[in-house]
Amino acid sequence: MTPEESVLTLLSLGDAGWGDELLRGALLTIEIALVSLAIGLVLGLATAGAKISHSWLLKALASTYTNIIRGIPEFLIILLVFFGSDQLMISLGNWLNYDGLFEINKFVAGVLALSLIFGAYASEVFRGAYLAVPYGQIEAALACGMTPMGAFWRIRMPQMWRYAIPGLGNLWMVLLKDTSLVSVIALDELLRQSNIAGETTREPFMFYLAAALIYLLFTIVSDYGRHRMELRANRGVRRV
């Protein structure tokens, strides 16, 4: 068997090769990232809302959450959520005097941890974007007789997205890369699949390289997507 052939066999689909495992892992990676993105965006918007609210309690809660997430390694957060959610569920079970059913699976724990991380950083992006919309425009809208809610939805929101897209794009790419961390809680995503493949075949270099290239591909596609979205969001803006 020539080296090229053996590489092709190892990366092939089906039972002989690990190609299908890697692909399945890559799909799970995207799945985790997309679900975390959706939850993280909601969390980020809510936290940003709390930060610009007039309640000091909401403000304090929101900034405590952001600061804690920013000061603790993502790796530790994932382990904490993974093991912590279990213990929380056990105590909840004890309180209800029932054990069973309460199981947070690895996928949920991973997604929860990644959403918490994404939400914390996204709240800062949203807050910045909110403040970037000139207040004069809101005043103008109110003066024209729009309600405050109307001004928010019609004037502030559409423009906020424009300011938020570059920051959110960055966070999305951080999120994509952070999904690799959930391999430590044995979720069979891309990195863990290549890990298993590399150890079993004793070709770790090739499989880690394959994983790196797939992640790189994700980044390139995301970069392109972000570029397109920026163009679209800015289509009404005059270029200098």
């Binding site: 279990d86 213990q87 056990i90 054990d99 059913l101 309460f102 199981e103 809680i185 044995a186």
Partner: peptide
């Protein structure tokens, strides 16, 4: 995580 997950009824 093998023991914690047993305790968590996984």
């Amino acid at each position: 995580g093998i023991i914690p997950a047993l305790l968590a009824n996984k």
